[in-house]
Design a protein around this nucleic acid. Structure first.
Length: 271
DNA sequence: TTGTGTTTTATTGCCTCC
DNA sequence: GGAGGCAATAAAACACAA
């Protein structure tokens, strides 16, 4: 603050008179006299030199007393200020300035505390979000595992692989197939043998010069197997149908042939 | 010792209230 | 219009690292 502005201020606001302009004319106590000595301990120094030292830190006792009063009341009335200033040996304006600055510090401190609390709350929320996210990640991992397991089970079902023991259950079907084929082959072989014998006998008796007939080696295509689900039951279907086996018979035979795998038996029985 | 950042005291300008 | 509050700021005092 330059002296020019101070002078202007002194002209406009009487209550803003510089401290050095009033110190020495007040009725100081002993402490106030000490403070005044501090202000003027330059002795014969000029007014400009004194102005350069117009700021003097209050003593610890003064600050302690001011703090104790401030704790009880942050604003002082005129009489209170005068009495406190007298008691502490301070200028009334000094007390006023001190309370004003103290209120400002308290306001800033309160603002900082509030911000700190807000930040703490934010940190707590972030921690909660982190925990929830961690839990979500665990659930996601568990979900992935379950999905993978589900996929394996589905593939096992569709591939006819026992997901309990890992052994293929598909070979159980060829067993039925083989039984069916064996039966067919035996029947066809008998028919063919019989027909060949009859044909050759007839041809020989008639002596028509036809070449002898040899048994056919061509066989019918392998039947296709499939599952049909419905009515809470899964049935084995053979295409083309076996001329000598009903679906129930084949299904029962299939179930019996795979009965070594209890879980598959249950799956094939009910859905 | 000195430069630099922080704290404390004091000032200024503007505002509201009585 | 005077008294006093507040925000912004100046300046002195202080703390501390290099």
């Amino acid at each position: 603050m330059d002296n020019g502005s101070q002078q202007e201020s002194s002209d406009l606001h009487v209550h803003h008179l510089p401290i050095v302009s009033v110190i020495g004319v007040e009725d100081h106590t002993e402490e106030a006299d000490d403070a005044a000595v501090d202000y003027h301990d330059d002795g014969s120094e000029g007014q400009d030199e004194v102005s350069n030292k117009r700021m003097k830190r209050h003593t610890d006792d003064q600050i302690k007393h001011l703090e104790s009063v401030f704790e009880r009341c942050t604003y002082l009335g005129g009489n209170q200020r005068v009495e406190l200033a007298k008691k502490l040996g301070m200028e009334e304006r000094q007390v006023k300035f001190w309370f004003q600055n103290r209120r400002t510090r308290k306001k800033v401190a309160t603002w900082v505390d509030k911000r700190f609390i807000i930040i703490q709350g934010g940190i707590a929320i972030l921690n909660m979000m982190h925990d929830e996210r961690q839990e979500g990640m665990w659930l996601q991992e568990e979900n992935d595992v379950l999905h993978a397991e589900n996929k394996v089970l589905k593939e096992a079902i569709w591939a006819n692989i026992c997901f309990t023991c890992g052994s293929p259950v598909v070979p159980a079907i060829p067993t039925v197939h083989h039984r069916y084929l064996s039966f067919q082959n035996m029947r066809l072989a008998d028919e063919l043998q019989h027909a060949t014998a009859v044909f050759n006998m007839v041809a020989q008796d008639a002596d028509v010069g036809l070449p002898p007939v040899f048994p056919l080696t061509d066989v019918s295509p392998l039947p296709q197997f499939g599952f049909v689900t419905g009515n809470n039951q899964t049935s084995l279907v053979i295409d083309p149908p076996s001329p000598s086996h009903s679906e129930n018979q084949v299904s029962t035979e299939f179930a019996n042939s795979t009965s070594t795998c209890p879980r598959l038996f249950i799956l094939s029985g009910r859905t």
